[in-house]
Simulated assay, not measured.
Amino acid sequence: MEFSRFTEVPNLHQLKQAQEQLEGVVYQTPLEYSHSLSERFGASIYLKREDLQKVRSYKLRGAYHKIVNLPTDLKAIGVVAASAGNHAQGVAYACASLKIKGTIFMPKTTPLQKIEAVRFFAKDYARIKLVGDTYDDAYKASLDFAIKHQAVFIHPFDDYDVIAGQASVGLELLNQMQQMPDFIISPFGGGGLSAGLGLVKKYLAPSIQLIAVEPEGAPSLSESLEANKVLELSVIDRFVDGASVKRIGDKTFEISKSQVNQVLKISVKSLCRTMLDLYQKEGILAEPAGALSVAALEELTSEIKGKQVVCIISGGNFDPKRFPEIGKLANLP
């Protein structure tokens, strides 16, 4: 079953309404000036620390905004979601907070740390079903379940209510900046965050260069932009589990193709080096998707020199026990 508060691209007033609904629910995460990155790249570089959000990613914003606006009768039926991890935690937190039953489908390949975190936030309100090897497998299974049980499906990105929730990241960081940023660099998986940032840019700061960054092994946005339509990739590399989907959203694509100024693809090697640097030099434990924006700085060195730059650290759900693996991948020839 489907229900949306916003049935069209949300306007600025609606984005601000969504932000108001999230007050007291989500943290206003820090916008930190990075001395080391600023010195290295000759720019003023700020890190928007969504890895310090309640569920260690921005995904709570969209999930909660979607679920809190469901009519009472639909809340009573319960919700269904599919996620590689972070959206699942957002849905689990929202279900427990609002006392709504939920069923969350996750790929069998989801890191154990993320599965355990979902169980923690869900308490007794949401149950987990592990299905398939990719997000897309879990997504298909969750849709079948939603139809069978007449439950509302909470899409992780391709939903205007979810996009409006994620847009609060952009509204928040503009309020935190002393001057308008020249660049905002955001990871891109399904596109919910970039679409939200794109709408904030459109309404409040059209001069901002919005850079979308995706894994080299899952270039869903790049391929779709080249074809000028949403494509489904046949094979993807699942290393960046929080930003690797075979098919981006139709709604997120339509917003992003007009608001994203540039798309960059990052290799696993470059990403792993960035994860190590963030931990060693900034004290930031970023998951692979969360480090994409900072990894992109190398590709933008000449463009950002002397500019105001914001990198979205989108998530920090990462098991430190994986650092030996990250170290090996960072030093590949």
Rank of each mutant, 00 (worst) to 15 (best):
S293T: 02
S270F: 00
S220C: 14
K281W: 01
Q280A: 04
D237A: 12
K305H: 13
M275A: 07
K265I: 02
G249S: 04
R238N: 05
A289S: 14
D277C: 00
G306W: 09
L285Y: 05
L285P: 03
F253Q: 02
I248L: 15
I284V: 15
L276C: 01
S267R: 08
S256W: 12
I236C: 10
S302R: 13
T301A: 14
K269Q: 13
A296F: 12
V294S: 02
K265L: 12
A286R: 03
L285E: 02
I236S: 08
I236K: 06
A286S: 14
K257I: 10
S293W: 04
L292D: 03
Q262I: 01
S293K: 02
I236G: 11
V240I: 14
V235W: 11
S293R: 03
A243E: 09
G306D: 12
E299H: 15
M275C: 05
D250E: 14
Q259G: 00
E226V: 13
V268D: 07
V263A: 08
T252I: 14
L271A: 07
L292E: 05
Q259L: 15
A227E: 15
E254D: 12
G283C: 00
A291R: 03
A243L: 15
G290N: 06
S220W: 07
S222N: 10
V245R: 09
V230E: 06
G290V: 03
D237S: 12
L297T: 07
L264M: 02
S256V: 10
E254S: 10
E303S: 15
S302W: 07
I284L: 13
G249Y: 11
L292T: 06
G283R: 00
K269D: 00
L278R: 02
F253W: 15
L285T: 03
Y279G: 00
V294I: 14
A295K: 02
S224E: 14
V230Q: 08
E226D: 13
L278V: 04
V235A: 06
S234I: 13
T252N: 08
G242I: 05
G306E: 12
P219C: 10
E287C: 07
K246S: 09
S222H: 11
P219T: 10
A243H: 04
L271I: 12
